[in-house]
Design a binder for these strands. Structure first.
Lengths: 144, 144
DNA sequence: GCATGTTGCAACCTTCGCTGTTACGACTGG
DNA sequence: CCAGTCGTAACAGCGAAGGTTGCAACATGC
């Protein structure tokens, strides 16, 4: 599976904003987050833009602008983040329609569809069990 | 997540070989399977080669050559197939090391690693619950 | 009202993995 | 020896994602 770091970076950004706000700051800039994540500010803005559409963060413009949480970290789960930044299904069907004249070619897609749906439902359930507060706690618990 | 059809095609190929053998044939050719899956025989050979390394199928060369199952479909699970054809982890870390001088940058990777491992374990458990016999049954159960 | 700092967003390049395709050697049964 | 099939390398095409640059939009302070 072509591994995708979008969920990781998004969690990183949310944890960073959350911690920064607890230290008394109002807003965090994409520049600061990008430095922590060692990437480009535009990448962060793109990701946070998707999180904003999902109602997880807010942004201000102008001088003293930046990003802030729209909800408490306790009320955000990895599922919220996952659905905000990962569009498609986990497993894909054939890129071209299989031979509908063949018994297997005809039945394989509905069969796999049903199986995959169950598995993705379980995945979503697991993601929903982890809040961003859990993530931040784990981050701060890392041994020096 | 960039969706990947490898697991789907591999399951298709195994179901096809299994059904073909039940119809009294000894071996299936990559050409036949490719026709059913509407793709190129080389793609099938590559995938089946990985399944052979995992001990799920066997191949013969020479005249009358082709592929056969190494085990019964009942004893193969989607987890076996998944591990044979999907190399990496489901979720990736940052492509570049985050800022180790930042608390979040320092702790984020171990934190996410632990979370992801739990989730992937659950995913593997779900995949292990589905046998290729289940898949073939679902395939044949598709309404006409 | 102007300077400043930041977001919003488009455009483009690079990289990477997968698929598709061609080609050809290796192998084996007849 | 011939024919059919696997085994595998090589390469092109595609799409997703990240990285980068550039610039307009915006809000705040002076």
């Amino acid at each position: 599976m072509s591994a995708n770091s979008r969920l990781t970076i998004a969690a990183h950004a949310l944890a960073w904003i959350g911690l920064y706000q607890r230290q008394g700051h109002e807003v965090a800039t994409s520049e600061q987050i990008a430095t922590s994540a060692n990437t480009n500010p535009v990448v962060i803005r793109r990701l946070l833009g998707e999180l904003r559409r999902a109602g997880l963060v807010e942004s201000r413009r102008g001088v003293g602008a930046g990003w802030s949480l729209a909800r408490e970290l306790e009320s955000m789960t990895l599922l919220d983040v996952y659905e905000a930044v990962e569009p498609g299904p986990l497993f894909a069907m054939h890129r071209t329609t299989p031979d509908q004249g063949c018994v297997v070619g005809y039945g394989i897609q509905p069969a796999m569809q049903g199986i995959y749906e169950g598995i993705e439902e379980t995945l979503r359930h697991e993601l929903a069990r982890v809040t961003l507060e859990n993530v931040l706690r784990d981050v701060l618990a890392a041994p020096r």
